[in-house]
Nucleic acid binder design. Structure first.
Lengths: 228, 228
DNA sequence: GTCTATACGTCGATAGAC
DNA sequence: GTCTATCGACGTATAGAC
């Protein structure tokens, strides 16, 4: 019997892995992928640099895991927003999705930029494509019902959905790139502290969300009179 | 005086560099960035692999150069489309831009996918951000005049422009990812030959362009009656 | 062009679990 | 006693400063 991993050890390992992910998520939210160095993640998790590689074979894999974790939440939030307004009209539900997406992004600008546009490893790029399809499907489902019910004018729901995903993402990148909380170049990570909490999230990009909603409604083919 | 590069040598070097770029562009159009290995580029250019590094310090730099070259042409084409219809309405000019962009992309699907979405080096990602701003500015200029003249309803031209860039790009990725001419995994580059020329470009994504135009017009706030 | 700084990934050694 | 998890420094590559 060469060796058996005892449950206690396994639990400790799982906890350590969770700690690594947690540390990575924190750094990602504050400094983006630029701040997610293996050394920094390890330090924040309270372990040695080399120990991170016990859980992730490369930085790219860790980056992808962080991406999936956060964006998975966003897809869930957006799906929920689409489902909540099921009794309302399709246009309202699409608006709810866009508003949810944009509001959450603007509330955590550095994180949103990291997920949407920050230049990173190609592996993360590939994951972006996957999750954009997920967002598209959420839109497409709502738009399809809207077209079938006659509330929305005839259109290809998949194409409109794709276009709205791209529109929302691209429209946000502008406002997001302005006030990046952390990083972008060498940043004093020590002195930065935790001052950039969840405080004034409303100050970023004022008017962006309403403008995006107007764009969305028009793109769907809802007459301007219906939304004032 | 250790060494002086004679004009003849310089000319030969310039030609060789141009040959490298030309080879890279060809591979990019046929197999995307996946096919743009340094070895393949060198082989097509008729030089040794190591000689490529005489002109480009890294694969990333070569990738960026190729990107700038091709997308620069696209920006020019789109700008020209925007300028040509100066006597017409702003909506028509925006449509001309979108049609130009989409038609050209669908005519060279593998190339367009490589430029728009293929996971590549972060340096190319950074360049994508730069050029998306360029496309945005083309849209924004036309939209601004349309809003000022009253042809288009009130809106933030920059935001609408960004959204249209994202919408166009994302809407094309779907149709583009279907019929990828080359690569995606190991591809027989030798036997492929030059069969994938400029032949039947119309077969890809039928109906995509009109649908995108409709989306664009609606998003701009042009009533459906005006475009039938 | 050189030189410094930073960051990824690895390795031998140590400590501890089985 | 054997095997494994952890540490932290090192090798190497690269980017930026001067």
């Amino acid at each position: 019997m060469p060796y058996r991993r005892t449950p206690a050890v396994q639990a400790r390992l799982d906890a350590q892995r969770a700690g690594v992910v947690e540390a990575g998520l924190g750094l990602l939210a504050e400094y983006g992928y630029a701040g997610c160095t293996m050394a920094a993640v390890a330090a924040r998790a309270g372990i040695a640099t080399g120990s991170v590689y016990r859980h992730f074979p490369s930085k790219a894999e860790l980056s992808v895991e962080l991406f999936r974790t956060v964006v998975g939440r966003e897809v869930a939030a957006v799906s929920e927003a689409a489902a909540l307004g099921a009794h309302r009209g399709s246009a309202d539900r699409v608006v709810a999705v866009i508003e949810t997406f944009a509001t959450r992004a603007l509330k955590a600008p550095r994180l949103a930029y990291a997920l949407l546009a920050e230049p990173v490893d190609p592996a993360v790029d590939a994951e972006r494509l996957v999750f954009r399809r997920a967002f598209r499907d959420v839109f497409a489902a709502v738009i399809t019902t809207g077209v079938e019910s006659g509330e929305l004018p005839p259109q290809d729901p998949r194409l409109t959905a794709s276009a709205l995903v791209g529109a929302g993402a691209e429209a946000l990148i502008g406002p997001l790139t302005g006030p990046l909380t952390g990083s972008s170049a060498g940043e004093t990570r020590e002195t930065a502290g935790e001052t950039a909490g969840e405080a004034g999230g409303e100050s970023v990009g004022p008017g962006t969300v309403p403008a995006l909603v107007t764009f969305t409604l028009r793109a769907l083919g809802v007459p301007d009179a219906h939304h004032a």
